[in-house]
Amino acid sequence: MYFWDKHKTITTYYELLSGEVCDRYGLTQMEYDILMFLHNNPQYNTAAEIVKIRKSTKSHVSTSLKNLESKGLVERIQSKDNKKHIEIALLDQAEIIIEAGLNTQKQFAQNVLRGLTEEETRLCIRVFDKICNNAEEQLKNDKENES
């Protein structure tokens, strides 16, 4: 399928760029992705939210968070009101990796959007959002139909 093949090309290119950061700092792709997700989406700072929004498996997120914690890059903060609610916080030691990741994301965006006008970029984002929303809706419908 054309869209899927092209999507894989974009993903492969992003992983190539971000892989350089992973290699430099001894991270797996999932660990890197979680660090960047927490930085770019500070409102979603629990393991459950990472799993839900990134469509990752619980086991991969759990393992990656344990590794990030052992590397001193994140810490888990248990809520005083609800012992089951644990927030993930980025630590200062993660800042250099986040900076490198942001530079990588900026380079990626510049390279893949090269030659597009501002209007074309906005249109591309709108269309992609619609595609993602449609897929999200279908996933929700399929899940409801299974019940």
Score class of each variant (00 low, 15 high):
Ala100Val: 06
Leu91Pro: 02
Asp92Ser: 14
Ile86Met: 07
His60Cys: 00
Ile88Lys: 01
Ala47Gln: 11
Glu75Ile: 01
Lys58Cys: 00
Tyr32Thr: 04
Gly72Glu: 07
Gly101Val: 09
Asn40Gln: 14
Gln105Phe: 09
Gln107Asp: 15
Met36Glu: 12
Asn41Ser: 12
Ala94Glu: 02
Ile53Leu: 13
Ser70Lys: 13
Val74Met: 13
Lys55Cys: 07
Met36Gly: 03
Leu35Gln: 03
Ser79Gln: 10
Asp92Arg: 15
Leu91Lys: 13
Lys80Tyr: 07
Val61Gln: 02
Val112Arg: 01
Leu102Gly: 02
Gln78Glu: 14
Leu113His: 00
Asn40Glu: 13
Ser79Tyr: 09
Lys84Cys: 01
Asp33Thr: 12
Ile96Phe: 08
Val51Gln: 11
Glu49Ala: 12
Asn40Lys: 15
Ser64Cys: 10
Ala47Ser: 11
Asn41Met: 10
Ser59Cys: 07
Arg54Gly: 00
Lys55Thr: 04
Gln105Tyr: 11
His60Ala: 05
Glu31Gly: 03
Ala47Glu: 10
His60Glu: 01
Ile97Arg: 04
Leu113Asp: 00
Thr57Leu: 05
Gln105Arg: 12
Ala47Pro: 01
Asp33Phe: 07
Asn103Leu: 15
Leu102Ile: 12
Asp81Trp: 15
Ser70Trp: 00
Met36His: 10
Leu65Tyr: 00
His39Glu: 08
Leu65Ala: 00
Asn67Tyr: 06
Val51Lys: 14
Leu102Gln: 14
Val112Asn: 00
Pro42Val: 04
Gln43Arg: 08
Glu95Phe: 09
Phe108Trp: 05
Glu99Pro: 00
Asn111Ala: 12
Ile97Gly: 06
Ile77Met: 08
Thr57His: 09
Glu69Leu: 04
His60Thr: 03
Lys52Cys: 05
Ala100Leu: 02
Glu87Arg: 11
Val51Leu: 08
Lys66Leu: 13
Lys106Trp: 14
Ile96Ala: 14
Ile86Phe: 03
Glu49Gly: 02
Asn40Met: 14
Val112Tyr: 02
Lys71Ile: 04
Ala100Ile: 05
Glu95Thr: 15
Tyr32Gly: 03
Asn41Trp: 09
Leu65Gln: 00
Phe37Asp: 02
Lys58Trp: 08
Met36Phe: 12
Phe108His: 06
